[in-house]
Simulated scan of single mutants.
Amino acid sequence: MTDVAAARDDSFALTRPVHVGRTHLVVTDLATVSDFYQTILGLSVIEKSASGVVLGVAGKPLLTLTTRGDVARAPRNAAGLFHTAFLMPSRQELAHWLAHSAHRHIRLDGASDHLVSEAIYLSDPEGNGIEIYADRKPGEWTYNSDGTVQMATERLDLQALYDSAPKTEWGGMAPDAAIGHMHLQVGNVPEADRFYEGVLGLKKMASYPGASFFASGDYHHHIAANVWNSRNAGARSDAMTGLSDYALNFNDKASLDKVLATLESLEIPVTRTAEGHSLRDPWGIGITLAA
């Protein structure tokens, strides 16, 4: 697995032909949710207005929060966000964040060892799911003969992770942290397969009952889609809280051109914007394809 072994471990997710850029959530209480992502996740304000805020690290936008006058809370079974997954550059940074969260008495929703990564789960004040995780070295992942990767959901020893944390004060999210993947709630897994694999050209790297995991360039997953809460969900409305849209960044222009040609051949509407090429998935979740 020369491509895997040769890659820089701390940026493997981001050096693939396609990776996740920033994400955008619609919220009802902008001040409360924004404060949570700053104080608990350690993001910094990059831009701010009356109706929205852009948060990130080292000047790099990761999360946009906006509100609107007609905003309505999305039901739990709506299509949209399962969680936004923030990728820490090292296990030490993950442990440092865990110690910070423990000292702030943050309630965690769970913690798992996925073989390829170690992950901690929580929710923001409006119930938007969050994963904080660190990848194991790609050379330690186990690939199957068809190029898929072995993943599992096993118990993570939180105490051991906490004990390994630096004893210094936590100074916020690491400057080279990123959004490693987006996990979506969708209405139908086969339709998600057709769209994310067949249209956007990602490879299905793993399957769980009711879920598929898609990636570019041998990563374990950049996008996941499940029906655990949302089976048969229809399209989202713009005024719903939760996930409005997210960006897929293309490191390779040829890959982007190929996807755009597929979208054109299938007559899927695409709008050119200042950020890139904008479209919606089958459940109304916005995607910006950016070079």
Rank of each mutant, 00 (worst) to 15 (best):
V4R: 11
A6D: 13
A7E: 08
D10K: 04
V20C: 15
G21F: 02
T23I: 12
T23H: 02
V26L: 15
V27H: 00
T28R: 10
L30A: 06
S34Y: 00
F36Q: 12
Q38Y: 00
G42Y: 03
K48T: 07
A50I: 07
A50G: 08
V54A: 07
V54K: 09
V57A: 04
K60L: 04
T64H: 00
T64M: 00
D70G: 02
G80L: 01
H83D: 06
A85M: 01
F86Q: 03
M88W: 01
M88E: 02
R91C: 06
W97C: 14
L98R: 04
H100N: 13
S101H: 10
S101V: 05
A102M: 05
R104F: 01
R107L: 05
R107K: 15
D109Y: 05
G110K: 08
G110N: 10
A111L: 07
S112M: 10
D113S: 11
H114Y: 04
H114C: 15
L115H: 14
L115A: 13
V116Q: 12
S117M: 09
A119D: 03
A119R: 05
P125A: 08
G127N: 09
G129R: 09
K137P: 12
T142W: 00
T142E: 00
E154H: 09
L158N: 14
S164N: 02
S164I: 00
A165R: 03
P166S: 02
G172W: 01
A174W: 04
P175I: 02
P175Y: 04
I179C: 09
I179V: 15
G180A: 06
G187L: 02
G187D: 12
N188A: 12
N188E: 07
A192S: 08
R194L: 06
G198Q: 06
V199H: 02
K204S: 05
K204C: 09
Y208H: 10
A215G: 10
S216D: 09
G217D: 01
D218I: 04
H220M: 12
H220A: 12
H221N: 14
H221F: 05
A224M: 11
R231D: 10
G234I: 04
G234D: 13
R236T: 04
S237I: 08
D238L: 11
A239D: 11
M240G: 03
M240C: 05
T241L: 02
L243E: 00
D245E: 11
A247N: 11
A247P: 09
L248N: 14
N249G: 06
K253Q: 15
L256N: 13
K258L: 08
L260D: 04
A261Q: 12
T262Q: 12
T262G: 10
E264K: 04
E264Y: 02
T271G: 11
R272N: 05
R272H: 01
T273I: 08
T273S: 14
E275K: 09
L279C: 08
R280T: 05
W283C: 14
I287D: 03
